[in-house]
């Protein structure tokens, strides 16, 4: 593809070659479909109170107050257990500072 002016012939060759490379598209096997069923990817509505009082990580607490949280770049965050999964990437790692109402 050295030229920018595509002739009908060039297009036909590319389209024909691509189609030949693929053959016909297949149908999905039952096994593949079942595999797809196992992927969640989004929140699920439910009718339970899953987070009302639990104090474990990731849940909110009874007296959660947005004002108690202070988010700062992690350079100044040395709390035990703060995660730095992206260390060495180049950017500063964001972290969390302040009183943790979950603790």
């Amino acid at each position: 593809m050295a030229t920018k002016t595509l002739t009908a012939l060039t297009l036909a060759a590319a389209v024909g070659g691509a189609a030949a490379a693929l053959g016909t598209t297949g149908t999905v096997s039952a096994q593949d479909m079942v595999k797809c069923y196992g992927i969640a990817l989004a929140g699920q509505n439910d009718c339970a109170n899953a987070a009302g009082t639990h104090s474990c990580a990731g849940q909110s607490t009874v007296d959660f107050d947005g004002g108690e949280w202070k988010l700062v770049p992690a350079g100044s965050c040395n709390e035990p257990g703060s995660e730095e999964p992206f260390a060495g990437v180049g950017g500063t790692i964001p972290g969390l500072e302040g009183s943790d109402p979950n603790a």
Binding site: D46, C47, A48, N49, A50, G52, T53, H54
Partner: peptide, 8 residues
């Protein structure tokens, strides 16, 4: 004690 309907 308060009961929470968490279905858990």
């Amino acid at each position: 004690a308060i009961l929470i309907d968490d279905h858990g």
